[in-house]
Every structure is written in C-alpha cells, then in structure tokens.
Design a protein around this nucleic acid. Structure first.
Lengths: 168, 168
DNA sequence: CTGAATTTTCAATATTTTATGAAAATAAAT
DNA sequence: ATTTATTTTCATAAAATATTGAAAATTCAG
C-alpha cells in the first residue's frame, strides 16, 4: 500500500471507529488527518482534503480544540490560522479520558447519588433492590473513576512496566 | 423522590448516557428497565412501560441478548417469552468490555497492523512519521487490550483491594 | 392438522444528527 | 476608513438512524 493510500485509509477508518463511540465522523476524520499531517493545516486544507464544507470544518475543529486535542498555531507571516494535533498518542488518550470522565462519568455519578436518596422504607424489598442496584453502580463508577485517574497520572511506560506485570 | 419516579428517572437517564456511548437509546432504556424490574418481563410489558412499538422492542431485545446482557427465561405455564437482565453489575460491566473489545478493539488492531505494512523507504521522513504513529497507536491498543483482559478476569473485589492500593 | 397466540421481519415513516453554504461578523492590510 | 481576507454562525438541506405497524413466519395447544 502506498503512503497516501494508507493515510486515506487511516482517516476513513478512524472516522468509522469514532462513530461507534458516539463521536461525529467528521470530527474523528479531521483529528486523524491532523495526526498524519507533518505540518499544521488551515481550514481550507481540511476542506479540500476531506471534501467537506467550510462550516463543517469550522464547527468540528472548534470541538476538537475544546477537547484539547488540537490547537491553533500561528505561522508568522501567514494571515490564516493553522491547526495541529497533539502527536503523543499517550497524551491524546489521557486527554480523551480526562474529558469523557468530566463530561460523562461525573454527571452519571451525580445522578446515581440522587437516585440513592429515593424515599421509602429500605426494608421494603422492592425499594431495597433498587437502592442496592444504584449503590452497586455507583461503586463501579467510583472504581472506574479511580482507575482512570491513575491512568491519567501515570507515565505510559510505567503502565507497560509495572501495571501489566503485577496482574497476569 | 418516590420509587416509581426514581426508576423512571433512571431509565430515561440511562438512555441518554447510552447515546453518548454510541448505544441506541431504546436499547439502553430496555436494559435499564430490566435492571430495575424484580421479575422477568415480556415484550408486551416493555412496550407498555416504555411506550414503544412491538418491532422496536423485539429488535432491541435481540440485540441485548446478543450482547449477553439479557436472557430469555421460560416461565412454566406461560406461553409468552420472558426476559431478564443480569443483575450483578460487575458481570454486566465485564461483559460489555468483552463485547466492545471483540467488536471494536480487535478490528482496530487488525487495521493498524495492515497500515503498518505501508510500502516505501522507512528512511523517508514522512513514511517514518506515519509508521511510527501507527505503531504507537498499536502499542496503546495492545496495552488497553491487556488491561481490559485483566479487568475481565479479575474479581470485582480484588479490583478494589489490590489494584487501587498498588497505585495510589 | 387447524387455529390462535406470539414473535419476527421489513418497507415505509419519523426523528435525530450532521453538513452545507451564504450571510454576518471579525480581523488585518492598505 | 475602506477594502479584502478570514472566520463564524445558523437556517435549511441532506443523510443517517431509529421507530412503527402490519404482514409473514413461527410456535404451541387442542
């Protein structure tokens, strides 16, 4: 496979994987494009390379910036804005974890805490079953929260070295 | 909050969280409904409680069964089929991990291995950058794979006890 | 077998999500 | 200040996804 073809393939597949995870296809593709681009790109570059509209690029690039996966870079002497993606994959992963934790896990734990406050006799079988279920979910959510925090704080290497040895 | 209201809330929010993760809202809601139902339910029960059509219930329940999160149960003396959800939340979580690994992570690793085979001189800077990136992604994917395997094999308790202590 | 109950399928429809493109806003150059 | 380049917004259009409901298929009881 030629390099250009491989990049194309990567971009397109990355988009497809993204949708499985509730991520807009174009957003994932733009991210992939920036990952495989040696130099920062302008919005026009992205429009052209992905055959998408200006508005589409603009909205999705803003989203990526808000996720801290992409940043604007200023190229001296150029009027247009350029964009570049963090290339360190471990950093990318931990940043995604950070954001999803904040946007999804935290709200879910908050909801579960509220639901635990259901009134009614905890001796009542049905109430108890419900409260227990919510409690178990919360416990799981908190464990996930801690595990993810550890990952985010760890070095990628440490992960490979220590973590994987301990278990197994 | 009353129990019925809390269950309602749980079902509806579970559906909303599901969509963020690329899971059909109704599928998530059916799962939630079964999680909070003390007894197995028929398709008619679900139609009524969620106000959705027969076809919708049927397709989504089949999906849930294929994910091994829900199973058909036979109630003696009854002609209709009943469905029940695994209530052990840790089992639910590991089963979801198992399935997503199989359906998403495995194919992604396969793709990355293919892309690594891009032809062209590895001394060429652009080729090298691309191959390195793919390699890094693959490494990350493999680490995730191993970590998830460990989780799936572990006892929930072991997780809380050992894992979280080791890190800190 | 026959017929009633139940489940499954799937074309048509509705809903939700995403993308477009032109107009408005902003920023820079002259 | 005016013109030109660039970015942003957002109403509308298009595409993707989910839902309905009725017909077909299946299952089971008698």
């Amino acid at each position: 496979m030629k390099l250009t073809e491989a990049k194309q393939q990567f971009i397109s597949s990355w988009g497809a994987f993204g949708t499985q995870w509730g991520i807009n296809r174009t957003m994932a593709q733009i991210h992939a494009l920036l990952l495989v681009s040696p130099h920062p790109l302008t919005q026009d570059d992205m429009m052209e390379q992905l055959s998408i509209s200006r508005g589409n690029v603009n909205m999705n690039i803003r989203d990526l910036v808000s996720w801290n996966l992409v940043e604007r870079v200023i190229v001296s002497g150029e009027r247009k804005e350029y964009f570049t993606a963090e290339k360190d994959i471990w950093k990318v992963a931990t940043q995604i974890i950070r954001e999803r934790k904040k946007r999804e896990l935290d709200p879910m734990l908050k909801l579960l805490s509220q639901l635990e406050q259901v009134d009614g006799d905890k001796k009542d079988k049905e109430t108890k079953q419900f409260v227990d279920m919510i409690g178990d979910l919360k416990k799981l959510g908190n464990q996930a929260d801690k595990l993810l925090d550890m990952l985010v704080k760890a070095e990628q290497n440490w992960f490979t070295g220590s973590l994987l040895k301990i278990f197994k």
